[in-house]
Amino acid sequence: MQTNHFCECCGSSNTEIRTSSRYFPIPFSDTLEYKNSVLHCNDCGEDVDLEDSVPVESFLSTENPQYTEAIQKSIDVILSDFQQMEISQSHIERSFGIPARTLSKWRNDRNLPSAAALSFLRILRTFPWLLNVAEKNFNKEKSHRIALKHELQSFFQEIEEKGIAVDTYFSLETNCATCKIEIKKDEKNEIDPNKIVYNDKIDFQRKNSAFKYGEI
C-alpha cells in the first residue's frame, strides 16, 4: 500500500506499509512470531516500525497468552530435564535455600515464576554444575575448581568424540583459573595420557578408551 509517509532513514517518499515479522526464540521453548506494521522504503530498503503498532514490550509480557504459554512450556521442559539428569526439585531447593515445593508450584499450579526466577532456572539448566557450587556455599576457590573441572570434562569428552588430528595445545580458562594443557599423540596415533601436561593438580587416567577424572 503506497503512503504519503516519508522514509525517516533516507527521506524518500517512495514508501509503503507492510506487515513484517520478527522472531523471538524463548529458551527451552518455542519461537514466537511477532507481526506488526512497518513503513518500508522502496529506495533504501529499510523498515521502520509504525508508532501505532502493538509494542513489542506488550507482546513479550504476560499480557500476551501466547508468551505465557511459551514460558510455561519452558518451565516444564527445564524441570523435566532436571528429572532426566536425576536432579530432584527438592535437591535444588535445599542447595539454593529456596522455600520447599516452590519449583513444583511453578510447574503444577501454573503460577508463573518471576522473570528473575525464570532466569535462575535457565541458568541452572545450562550449567547444572552450579548446583555443586551452591552445595559448597559459593566458596570462591571451590566454585572455580568445580567450574574448571566441568569445563575439562566437556573438553575431554569432545576429544573422545571428535578425535585430535595433530599435536595440540589448549588453554582452558574460567573466571579466575587457567589450566594449560598440552596433548601429544604417540606412534599409534593415540593420545598418550602421560603426555598430557597441565598446570593444575588434576589427575587424568585413560581407561577403556575413556578418560576418568580424578577428584579435584
Binding site: S20, R22, F24, V38, E46, D47, V48, P55, V56
Partner: peptide, 21 residues
C-alpha cells in the same frame, strides 16, 4: 531516535537486545 528494523535485528542477534526501548 529512529531505529530501523535491520538495526533491531542486529541488536537481537548479537546481544539479545530485543526492543528499541
Amino acid at each position: 531516535v529512529v531505529v530501523p528494523r535491520s538495526v533491531l535485528d542486529d541488536a537481537q542477534r548479537l546481544f539479545n537486545i530485543c526492543t528499541k526501548k
